[in-house]
Design a binder for these strands. Structure first.
Lengths: 253, 253
DNA sequence: AAGTGGTCTAGACCACATG
DNA sequence: ATGTGGTCTAGACCACTTT
């Protein structure tokens, strides 16, 4: 024959690059190790920097690489499993929940949330801001919308805002009997605020977990939590979750 | 004073573009409507095509747009909620599950899955391929790994492969008593095979749902399901899920 | 054949972190 | 000051769908 009649559908360069890099990561690199810079890598592979970046972007999306402006590109550790929507339903802020309250303000929620909250469109609700840290790294940022009707006894609390008030709202929530909770996960991108909180650039991919807490047949609270998609694997249902390993990938010295 | 001393941190053009486009989508466009082509849009906004594309990519990632090569860019409908990990644990292939079996082969699973499956590294297992369609659109593709030990009575089945054998394997699974299941969700990108199955380009963002089915204290099956991240919102726990609406967005005529 | 989005290039400049 | 990744440009060509 002579010519190998394959390549009738030549795969894009960045795709091939990604494959090569993935194999290199699996076999020749250690977690935490820094890669050559983009200009050198591009030259080494004989492609334009933009093409190389296309491959690196995908690898970062898959949690294999971590890139930081001004610093460099490093090999990322395996994603950490973070548990969401535990089997035994529980209010946020209860014992053994991984969050810590940051702030609380009284605000009118975005129009997009009016329906699931069952509040009037212009009705102000308590907005509790919480953050979640795992292994010393911020992994999620949450906005918890609590209609005033869900925490009727919120009096005698002098703090009009701040972490103290946030904890007070969460404490009052526990008094309600939780019927059930509804969860949803979808892909999103970090807004300016979440990006700062998660130590990422705006637009970074995030997993958005929306939880509706139902009590007495009504939505007593609505949580919108954004998790770093590059570093997190969300586990739910029963304990733990499944560990997936890439390759040899030793620990960097 | 004079100059508005803001813009000390000027936001990137593509970010601003994304904001403008989002507002336009919310107020001036209908679901299914086609946008002007990229060259025209770029010219209209006075930016390079690559910059415009950066904005469009993010909007597609967020499920607001749908782009198809050779066709154009259209306004995407709201994401559809697809239920995963139903509350009442059940084996795959049971009554009222949304999947349909496609194929089944006997293969050695990728090394990365050996540990969660608890099989020997070189042990072949049944690999059932299933696909899931919702509203006439493919939304997910699954590989279900079933160790031979989990389906001991798989004899008298003459079909060595194909959909018939796949259904047989699933049927045999029901005989085991399911202890519990462990779920995890993470972000990934479609490989060549999944991309074809999901009607997307390779590298498209997907939500990977890994489920480990536990019976008699051992992993009796392992499912790796990849969902289209652009069109799907995964719901779990109790029924339904939370509906989020963007804006007016009328239905296209 | 025409029109669309997808890939690729070779540059330039900017924002950020570090020495 | 230097080096990194992030943004942006103005072009070119390719793969695909539709007419």
């Amino acid at each position: 024959m002579g010519t190998t009649q394959l390549e009738s559908v030549p795969e894009p360069k960045y795709w091939h690059l990604k494959t090569v890099l993935t194999e290199a990561l699996d076999s020749e690199f250690s977690v935490g190790e820094i890669l050559p810079n983009e200009r050198d890598l591009a030259a080494r592979f004989g492609v334009a920097r933009a093409t190389l970046r296309q491959a690196l972007e995908q690898l970062e999306l898959e949690g294999r690489l971590q890139r930081r402006r001004g610093v460099g590109t490093t090999v990322a550790p395996p994603r950490m499993g973070v548990s969401v929507g535990s089997e035994q339903h529980a209010w946020p802020g209860g014992p053994d929940d991984a969050w810590h309250a940051v702030d609380c303000r009284l605000e009118v929620p975005p129009a997009a949330l009016a329906e699931p909250l069952v509040t009037g469109s212009d009705e102000a609700v308590h907005v509790v801001r919480r953050s979640r840290v795992s292994r010393g790294q911020p992994v999620a940022s949450e906005l918890l919308y609590v209609p005033a009707a869900s925490v009727p006894d919120l009096s005698g609390i002098d703090a009009p805002s701040g972490a103290a008030r946030a904890r007070a709202v969460l404490r009052e929530l526990q008094h309600l009997e939780l019927e059930r909770q509804e969860n949803a996960v979808e892909l999103g991108s970090a807004g300016a605020a979440e990006a700062r909180e998660l130590d990422r650039l705006p637009g970074a991919p995030v997993l958005v977990v929306t939880t509706r807490y139902i009590a007495r047949g009504r939505a007593a609270a609505l949580s919108v939590a954004t998790y770093r998609a590059d570093t997190c694997r969300l586990t739910f249902g029963d304990s733990g979750g499944v560990e997936i390993h890439h390759g040899p990938e030793r620990q960097a010295s």
